[in-house]
Structures are given as structure tokens and as C-alpha cells.
Nucleic acid binder design. Structure first.
Lengths: 215, 215
DNA sequence: GTCTATAGATTGATAGAC
DNA sequence: GTCTATCAATCTATAGAC
């Protein structure tokens, strides 16, 4: 309300640096990313970054926290936007779509977040391990609700089910093509596979199957 | 047959270096891994590595190729070991188990192979992109065979199905616990989810589901 | 085959002017 | 807030002895 013109504020620069750093960390890795490289893209000198962040590690930490928090908040917002009394399956589907679209919306941060944890400095890594555990617990709870509601077979391993879903969606940047499909359609197809399975229910081609086995 | 004692041969040293490098690249990333670090673990000096590999990049390239080739060969061997005339589903399941166990058997290489491609030097990255495409084509073919045999519903997107399976299995190092389960059991459970889906077939608790939707 | 020694380049970070 | 200048550390890679 006070000032917001071509005049770049400290907060703006800080945000720009984080976004550029996120992309660099995500595409090149933490160690391969240089402060000079980030500074070049921001149009400033490397030394100037240290006015906003005390070290390369502090910059990484800010990027990782901001990314994880943004993605998780976006997911939960989608669920919260459902009408009250929504079923567990509706909440589950809304959550998946929320996570999926968040992975795309915060693409730069997604890449950074998706990197192997082992590469990160100890402090940052430990925080991210906790974050990841919280995220998994959240989805574990979603699946338990689904189970309680009667939407999950008794013989299904919830942990494996969670891996199935999350490994697919969190790797979305490596396979999703915006021009070929939409998040809504993909999540719907994903849920069809997950809930209904891929095997045809009515047996219409027993001959072909028998033939293949025999030949 | 000529010599194989405490006397380390060139091939032995080369292999040891590759294994140590694979683990280092996989856990720390390419840029963060130093030749000194690898040499320390091998019990030699950094300069000595250059007798076996012309550069750090050449070492990486050897590691990536050896890993990818080992894992793929192991997968295909499992399929080839099936009795002749095995069904597409049997081949599919054998392939999954082969890939799963290969990911564990070549654990050090798996980590290196699983890293984001963007981090790698251009030459190595391009080779790995081709490798990855070949691997995806292979599994695409497996799913098409399954479809031809009548084991796949018409409305299932094969590409999405492939992502579903491969993203789960190739991330196995991040979630599989040898002490809690076995590769055979996990692959079996995975196939149950994939083929049959997770939703109960007989509707036994309509009251509960209706209640949840209504309240 | 492995060593010692070192060249040559790059990096994260600081000091102080403006 | 951003700059210039620079330091100290670390890295890949090479040269040549053994």
C-alpha cells in the first residue's frame, strides 16, 4: 500500500532470488549450483546475495521450506474447499488433484524438493526428512479414512498404496505433458486404475488368452 | 585362471572404483562427489584414479552405463527364464520382479541411476536419456502385449499405467524395507492393486457410505 | 600402477566504498 | 542494497619419480 512500483523492494528481490535458486538447485543440484550463477540470472553480483541470505545453505533452506509449505498448503486448500460432509473418497480425490496441480504450479520448487535428500547439507536434510514424514502421514490418514468408509479392500497394504500414488504424482514433472492432457483428466484416470484396476471384468476373449498361453 | 590372489588386478581396481563412485554419485550427487573422496575409500591417492579413468566425467559415464545395463539385463534374464509359451501377464510379473530385485541387487548403481538427469554433464546425460527411453519402450511393449492378450481394459491409458508401475518400483530404495517384506510379496501386492484395484467388489456397507456422503 | 607435487581454475564468503 | 576487490579453500587434472 505504501510503495509498489518499478521500485524493487527487498522482499521482491528476496523472492526473485529464491525462485531462481529453486530452479537452479532443481535442475543442476545443490553442489553444482553457484552463487554467481544465481546472481547472474537475477542481474546482480554474487556478493549482493549475502545481503538477503547469510549463506548458500541458508538460501537452500529457505527454498526448500517455502516449496514444501506452498505445495502442502495448496493441497489442503483444495480439500478444505469441498462442501461440508464430503466423503473420504471425494476428499482423497480432491487432495490428489491439489497435489498434482501444486506440483505444476510451483514447478521450480517441485524440482528442488524432489531431489535426493542425501545431497543436502545435514541441517537442511533433517528438516526435509521431517517434512516428508509429515506429508506421508497426511496421506496415510487420507487412505485410512478411505478404509474406514469402506472404500478400501481389507487385503490392501495402505503403505504400498500410498507409495503407489505419491511416487507417481511427485514425479509428474518427468512425464506429464500439458498439451496432451489435463490434471483433472490424469487424476481421474489414475483413480480409475487405483480403484477399479486395469483387468477387464467381463471375460470376453478367453480363446485369445488360452491361445497365448499355449503357443 | 592365470592370477587371482591377494594380488589386485587392474580390472579389480577398476571395478572397485566404479562401485565406490556409484555409491558416492548416488548419495552425494555428481558435483558434490570428489575424486579425493572416492580415492580415500579405495585406499589410493586421487591422482591414481586417472590411470583407470581419463576424467571424472569418464568415470561417471562408466558407472551409469554399467548400472543401466546390469539392471536391464537382470530384468530380461528373469523373463527369459520363464517356460516357453508363458502368458503376457506371467512375463509382465516376472519382469516386474526382475526389475525390483535388480534395483536392490545393484543398489549403489540404482541410486546413481535414479538421480535427476539434468545434473549430469551433457554427454552423459544424452546417453542416459536414450537409455531411459529404451527402458520405457520395453515396458510399453510389455503392457501392449498384456493388452493384446486381453488382460488390460480398453479405457486404460498404457502410458499412465507404465508411469504408475515404474515410478513405484524405481523409487524402491526410498521405501522398501527388507526386514518387513520380500520382493516377491511386494510385487504380488503391487500387481493385485494394479489388476484388481483397491475398491471392495461386494457392497457390504452401503449404509456407512451413504451416511458419510449425507452427513 | 601408485606415488608426490603442483598447476590452473573456480567457489563461498568477507570487507569496505558508494 | 548493490558494487568492486579479494581471500582462503577446494577441486580436477597433469608431470614425472619410483
Amino acid at each position: 500500500m505504501t510503495k509498489r512500483q518499478a521500485n524493487a523492494t527487498t522482499a521482491d528481490t528476496r523472492e526473485k532470488l529464491m525462485r531462481l535458486a529453486a530452479r537452479a538447485f532443481g535442475t543442476q543440484g545443490y553442489a553444482a549450483t553457484t552463487m554467481r550463477g544465481i546472481a547472474d540470472q537475477a542481474g546482480i553480483e554474487a556478493a549482493s546475495i549475502y545481503y538477503h541470505f547469510s549463506s548458500k545453505e541458508a538460501l537452500l533452506d529457505a527454498v526448500m521450506e517455502h516449496g514444501a509449505q506452498s505445495i502442502f498448503a495448496h493441497t489442503q486448500a483444495r480439500i478444505a474447499a469441498l462442501p461440508p460432509g464430503a466423503s473420504a473418497e471425494q476428499r482423497f480425490r480432491a487432495g490428489l488433484l491439489g497435489l498434482f496441480s501444486a506440483m505444476l504450479k510451483y514447478g521450480d520448487y517441485t524440482l528442488a524438493h524432489g531431489r535426493q535428500l542425501a545431497e543436502l547439507p545435514d541441517k537442511v536434510r533433517e528438516r526435509q526428512i521431517k517434512r516428508r514424514a509429515q506429508h506421508q502421514d497426511f496421506w496415510h490418514g487420507m487412505l485410512e479414512d478411505l478404509h474406514t468408509e469402506g472404500g478400501l479392500r481389507e487385503d490392501i497394504d495402505i503403505a504400498l498404496c500410498r507409495v503407489f500414488i505419491l511416487s507417481t504424482i511427485t514425479s509428474v514433472q518427468t512425464w506429464f505433458n500439458r498439451k496432451k492432457s489435463s490434471p483433472e483428466k490424469v487424476v481421474d484416470e489414475l483413480c480409475t486404475i487405483l480403484f477399479e484396476g486395469v483387468r477387464p471384468r467381463e471375460v470376453r476373449k478367453p480363446a485369445r488368452r488360452a491361445q497365448a498361453v499355449a503357443s
